[in-house]
């Protein structure tokens, strides 16, 4: 279970939240002015990002407020939360390790389970890693 930081209530358990899909999909101001294609794009089409994704969450069992979050979908880690109506903060996207778009660590992707010597830092090569690595 994830910890999600509600902008109003602080870090809380995922079971208190509901997911609301992709963020920043504004409802068109004048739907009748859109072509069928444009309207269908709004109603049906959402992006399916591997990596940093802006999405909506609702603290449904808490303050009942909606908010936005940036989450790395390849590692399931939250990078930022921000209020409805605010612009997403700038996030440095992690360096990718796999051709499929996973970062070096955190995705569980096969390619990232074992570290090669080339990827280890000097300290990791020489030092004993126990005791609070």
């Amino acid at each position: 279970m994830l910890i999600i930081t509600c902008p109003y209530c602080g870090p809380r358990e995922q079971s208190e939240f509901h997911y609301g899909g992709e963020a920043h999909i504004a409802r068109p101001a004048d739907p009748q002015a859109l072509t069928d294609g444009q309207w269908a794009e709004f109603v049906f089409m959402r992006s399916n990002v591997k990596g940093v994704f802006a999405e909506r969450w609702n603290h449904s069992s808490g303050c009942r407020k909606w908010f936005n979050a940036l989450r790395d979908t390849s590692t399931d880690r939250f990078l930022a939360v921000y209020e409805m109506g605010a612009k997403p903060p700038q996030i440095d996207a992690p360096e990718l390790r796999t051709p499929a778009g996973e970062p070096l660590i955190g995705s569980g992707n096969d390619e990232t389970k074992v570290m090669t010597e080339a990827e280890m830092t000097e300290a990791e090569m020489t030092e004993d890693l126990g005791g609070g690595s």
């Binding site: 590692t75 074992v114 570290m115 890693l129 126990g130 005791g131 690595s133």
Partner: peptide
């Protein structure tokens, strides 16, 4: 195989 790098707040001893 032994732990190389942690992903979470964790240490293996």
């Amino acid at each position: 195989f032994r732990p190389a790098r942690s992903w979470q707040e964790e240490a293996t001893v």
